[in-house]
Design a protein around this nucleic acid. Structure first.
Lengths: 206, 206, 206, 206
DNA sequence: AATGAATGAGTGTTCATTCAT
DNA sequence: TATGAATGAACACTCATTCAT
């Protein structure tokens, strides 16, 4: 059963007035014009509230970006962890589960993934540290799986150290070109990328 | 012998006063702060000229971006074409040549490649059309090689249609993390990515 | 008793913060330097507010001009209509009432009248359409009176079609040379121009 | 024979390179956008020369306006003087001749007349003094004729002092609405305005 | 007489943000 | 929580003008 829910399910009502509307408006604005290209007025307009009211929820524009990126990376990490945890012991299976979950997240939250990919550079200070940590954790999961697979002989790549990064790159890049009316379903895209990942790792067929 | 020349060699003196200095300053500014985050004053400062004089060379900020991206994509296309043309008939060899040239360009012009990757979305109108066309031509070269390799049996991938994009993604992504003081030389990085590409295509060893 | 109140009575407090002050400052600036010669900074200074705050009231410089001209032409039209309505049936009396009201308005709002006369050319789009319509309505009143007077034999001019325009021209031109310390009072000026108008129409004395 | 020469005959080749082209371009630019709305770049473009070359002919933008207005007012004065000189002794005939010449000039040089009417306020210093003097001389001619006519009993107006100004106003105003494809020929327009002028003066029929 | 490069001041407008209510 | 008014700095861009050639 493909979950093709049209609305983003991540930024749900937070129980705090307009917060979800503001975050969704910020996401749309940043996605369309980029962090610096979008203005707080754009966000206010999209959230159907006043400019000044934004500051009751987020004391600065950068906090909007920080909130979005934190949610994106935390949720991605959570999903991959969950998927991997339920995927048994073999590295290939765990990798496949991670990639499928990763692809699913990117497809489901394409704009958020795109913003997380391209606007993270404008994050500074503690917010940046926190988001980068989550991103590194995500990559760390891949690294562990790869290392285990190499150790067990499942993966033959001579470049184990760089493989994780490249797998993450391929999954993230989906956000830059994916279209809901494209050729492949989310599941097929997950399968495809899992196969790419295993090929990259020069996995031996069982 | 790796050529690790620190200065970009693409934006040389154009014989028109400050043009090269302005383009280099724009590249540096866009690379550091992004297109919308960088101001024309930043560019003027970097080029050591006055703000208003910029407009004698480029009538709008977007023309600076357009000029940079046009140069980047044209030069990348030219390099890959040249490399492929001299690589014989076998698809694997041609692919390897393309990837090595591609990686070489990205490493040599890292900031330019990064800007071309991340700021192309802010290009509009005819400039965008032109740059997108050059980018598509580049990907088209990969597509042709992949198609030929699949036809000849060299490549076994069940997803030939998407392979070119992913190879381009991997090469482009180098611009987002490469550091000149990194572990691998340019040549090694080229080799590595050529191997990634062939793995992605599920190439049969000869 | 001539009302020579120095302050313009048209742009009174609108109940919206600084709006009246801004409009009055814009009027003074446009009157002194012309629309293109006056800057938004001039207006802000005259209104004793910040440059950026202007834009909370009028989203563009041209909107300031549009607002001024709209008020001027609407009020002039209203005054002339009122005067004519209370002037009985004879064309000469109606014409006299119109001219006296017209002259009164120009004298009372000299700068506004001058700006309306000389800067209307810089109005564009819908604002222009609206203002031109009000101006045409004003002239239309004169045209109707003239036509009625010619039909009744009161006016003997062989050029009834152009008379209205010329009467309006004479009244408007007052704004270009009138000085409050001049020879004639507002009433005398009104009488004089009424006589000019009747002469122009070759009115037969009763 | 109506002289409907399409090109302005006043700004002919001055024997000094591009001077005439520059003046004509300035006239067109000022006529279309006003003095402050038109830029030296507009003028250069219209004259098909470089921006800097303008300054070889006119050391400042205001000198362009001064030159245009000087030519306009001098030529108008000359034409009216000539016409009046050949019109005999009777005030009515002299006035008629002045108005016909005046109207002819305005129609023939409509844009120049419009610029002279509306941009004279942006002239300063000696240039302004000179132009205002020419304008006053023109009005002085009318004043003399009117005074003579009143003295001789030809004109019955009780406002002889203001008549000249109003006649000039009516003639100048033609530049604001005249269209070459209008109802009346230049001669008819001259006749019409001569009749207006005589009516304004309450001339007694001979 | 003519040009292209250069400049500093200024243009209208928008920015993120704050404040009083 | 919500708003409209307000602000100073900054924005991209244009201005009239100058200079070296």
């Amino acid at each position: 059963m493909t979950d093709r829910s049209p609305a983003p399910t991540l930024l749900r009502d937070t129980g705090r007035g307009n917060e979800a509307a503001i975050l969704n408006a910020a996401l749309a604005a940043f996605g369309e014009k980029g962090f610096h290209g979008a203005s707080m007025r754009d966000v206010a307009r999209g959230a159907a509230t006043s400019l000044s009211n934004l500051y009751n929820y987020f004391p600065a524009k950068s906090d909007l970006l920080a909130a979005l990126l934190r949610m994106a990376n935390d949720e991605l990490l959570r999903r991959i962890e969950t998927a991997v945890d339920g995927a048994g012991r073999r590295a290939a299976a765990r990798l496949r589960a991670a990639v499928v979950a990763h692809v699913g997240f990117v497809v489901e939250h394409q704009v958020l993934s795109l913003v997380a990919l391209s606007e993270i550079r404008y994050l500074t200070g503690a917010a940046r540290t926190r988001v980068v940590a989550a991103r590194d954790s995500t990559q760390g999961i891949y690294e562990e799986i790869v290392a285990a697979g190499v150790a067990s002989g499942e993966f033959g790549t001579p470049y184990p150290d760089d493989a994780a990064r490249n797998i993450v790159s391929l999954c993230s890049a989906i956000s830059t070109w994916y279209r809901a009316d494209g050729r492949l379903s989310t599941e097929e895209l997950g399968e495809q990328h899992a196969r790419y990942a295993l090929a990259l790792l020069e996995a031996r067929l069982p």
